[in-house]
Deep mutational scan, measured.
Amino acid sequence: TRVETATETAWISLVTALHLVLGLSAVLGLLLLRWQFPAHYRRLRHALW
């Protein structure tokens, strides 16, 4: 049971790290898009909202 718990903890930390990385890359990508294509971003936002 001790090994299982350790594996579970490792998986949880791995998944958390993955989610953090994905979230950060998504935010960075959005910022980059907004910085590179302001007109396109505004049009996209206008279409979405």
Rank of each mutant, 00 (worst) to 15 (best):
T1R: 07
T1E: 09
T1A: 15
T1H: 10
R2I: 13
R2Q: 15
R2H: 11
R2P: 11
R2N: 12
R2G: 09
V3P: 02
V3R: 02
E4C: 04
E4F: 09
E4Y: 11
E4M: 04
T5V: 03
T5D: 04
T5Q: 04
A6S: 14
A6V: 02
T7S: 15
T7C: 01
E8A: 05
E8D: 11
E8F: 04
E8S: 06
T9P: 14
T9V: 12
T9R: 08
T9N: 07
T9D: 15
T9W: 10
T9G: 11
A10Y: 01
A10N: 01
W11E: 07
W11G: 02
W11R: 03
W11A: 04
I12L: 09
I12H: 02
S13V: 15
S13A: 15
S13I: 12
L14G: 04
L14T: 00
L14N: 01
V15D: 00
V15K: 10
V15R: 02
V15F: 06
V15W: 04
T16E: 04
A17T: 07
A17I: 10
L18C: 09
L18N: 02
L18T: 10
L18Y: 02
L18D: 00
L18M: 09
L18H: 00
H19L: 12
H19S: 15
H19T: 15
L20Y: 01
L20I: 12
L20M: 10
L20E: 01
L20K: 02
L20Q: 05
L20T: 06
V21C: 14
V21G: 11
V21I: 10
L22C: 13
L22P: 07
G23D: 03
L24S: 02
L24M: 09
L24H: 01
S25G: 08
S25H: 07
A26L: 13
A26R: 02
A26P: 02
V27M: 09
V27W: 06
L28V: 03
L28G: 03
L28W: 04
G29C: 15
G29H: 04
G29R: 04
G29F: 15
G29A: 11
L30C: 14
L30G: 13
L30T: 04
L30Y: 09
L31K: 01
L31V: 11
L31I: 11
L32T: 12
L33F: 08
R34V: 03
R34N: 05
R34Q: 06
R34K: 14
W35H: 14
W35I: 14
W35G: 08
Q36A: 13
P38V: 10
P38H: 12
A39C: 05
A39Q: 13
A39N: 13
H40N: 09
Y41T: 13
Y41S: 12
Y41A: 15
Y41G: 06
Y41F: 15
R42C: 09
R42I: 05
R42A: 13
R43H: 06
R43A: 10
L44M: 05
L44W: 08
L44C: 09
L44Y: 09
R45H: 00
R45Q: 04
H46T: 12
A47N: 08
A47G: 03
A47W: 14
A47I: 07
A47F: 15
A47H: 11
A47Q: 14
L48G: 01
L48I: 10
L48S: 04
L48M: 11
W49E: 01
W49P: 10
